[in-house]
Design a protein around this nucleic acid. Sequence first.
DNA 1: GGGTTCATCCCCAGAACTGGCGATGGTGGA
DNA 2: TCCACCATCGCCAGTTCTGGGGATGAACCC
Lengths: 219, 219
Amino acid sequence: MSIAVSIVEDDPQVRSSLAKLIDSSPGYRCVSKHASAEEALAELPKVKPDVALMDINLPGLNGVECVRRLKPQRPKTQIIMLTVYQNTEHIFNALAAGATGYMLKQTPPAELLAAIKEVHGGGSPMSSHIARKIVQSFQKPAAVMAEAQSLSPREAEVLNLLAKGFLYKEIADQMKVSYATVHTHIRHIYEKLHVRSRTEAVAKHLGQNRAFPELSPAD
Amino acid sequence: MSIAVSIVEDDPQVRSSLAKLIDSSPGYRCVSKHASAEEALAELPKVKPDVALMDINLPGLNGVECVRRLKPQRPKTQIIMLTVYQNTEHIFNALAAGATGYMLKQTPPAELLAAIKEVHGGGSPMSSHIARKIVQSFQKPAAVMAEAQSLSPREAEVLNLLAKGFLYKEIADQMKVSYATVHTHIRHIYEKLHVRSRTEAVAKHLGQNRAFPELSPAD
DNA sequence: GGGTTCATCCCCAGAACTGGCGATGGTGGA
DNA sequence: TCCACCATCGCCAGTTCTGGGGATGAACCC
C-alpha cells in the first residue's frame, strides 16, 4: 500500500507542486491539501493520513500549534515540518510539539520523498544542518564540562539527586550519610560550579538554557 | 581533497574491512587504524583525521570516554560512533561527550560512506531509529504537556525565570510586579504541576529526567 | 447578574536552604 | 613526611522558600 500524505501549506503554488510531486511518485499518494491550520485540524482526523507535511508559517494558527493539537488526536500520523526556519527555537518547539521530522523547504524532491518514506518507517528525517543543531544541543559548553569534571564522584551523585528535586534530608537518606554531609557536598558543588542555589546548579548540570538561552542570573 | 578517516575498533576483522571499504572508495582515505582508546588518544592528535569512526565497546577505556578526552584536543575531527548499542543512555552519553554522528554497525557500506561525507559537511548522520529516539527525547509525556498547558501566560513566564535560578525578588523586578505576586504565581504553578519545590517544577518543565529517568521524589 | 479565571497585592509561621566557622580520618602523591 | 583532596560529621545565623489565610479589580462567558 502506498503512503498516504497530507499537505498543510498556505502558498497555493508550493502546495500544488508538492501534491504533484507526491502523486506522480509511485508508492506515494497525496490524500488531502489544506491551506490553513484550522482547516487541517478539522479535516485530518477524518482523512487519517500516514504522513503530514506541515508548513510552520501559516496564517492564523501556526504550524507548531497545529501539530500540538493534532498529535493527541492522530498519534499515528507522522508529521514532517517543512519550513525555511533554521533557528533552534523553532526546531525545538516543533519537535516538542510532536513533529518527528524537520526538513528545509529547499530540500530536493528526491530527498523529500525519501524523508516521507523514512518517517513512515520509524525514522526521523531532518536536513543535515538541522540534525547537527539538535546534536549540539546535547553538548554542553566546554566551560561547563570542565566545571562538571572537577566534581568528585560523591558530589556528582548529590547533584543528580538535587536535579530530581529531593530535599537535603531525602538525599541524606538515599546516600546513607548525614544531613551535614549532604550540606557540605552541596556547598562544594556550588563553589565549583560558581552558583548560589540548587536551581542554578541544576540548570547548569542539565546543560539547560537549551531552548531559551536568553539570560541567566549573576551574569 | 579526499576525506581523511581514522578507525578506532578492537575487532581486527571489522577494523580491516572498514579500512578496505574506505580506501577503495574514491573521495575517502583511511589514514590510521587503532585497536584501543588509549592508542587512539595518543595517535589521533598527530594524525589529525577529518573524521573518526569510533566503536563504543572498546577494551580498557571505552569509546565514549575516548571521545570525551579526544574532542577537546581535536575539535575539528568529527566523530561517528559505530556500535550495536541502541539504548538511549549510550546514545545521549556519546553525543554529550562530543560525538556528532551515531550509526549502527549493521549499516550498509554505501550509507556509511554517505554518513562520513555528511558529518564532514556539517551534518549529523544517524541511523533512522537512533534519530527517532533523539527526537522523542524532546517530546514530553502527554501528562506533563497537559499540566503545562494549564499554566496561565504569566505563570509560564514565572516558571521560565524560576528555571534560570532567579530569586523571587529578582523575578519580581524583571516582571515589574511585587514579591507577593510572584509568590502567588509560584504557588499556583506548584499546584498545577503537582510539585512541592522550584527544582521539581524546573525538572518537569525542562522535560528532564531525559538521560537518567531513574526515580523522582514523591513517586 | 453570577460564575470563572486571571493578575495583582498583603500577612504570617514554619520549613528548607545558604554560607560562614569548625572537625576527623583516609588516601595518594611530591 | 607533608600536603591536597576527599568524605564524613557538627553548629549557628541569616536568608529564602513554602503553604496557609486573606483581598481587589478586570475580563470573559452564560
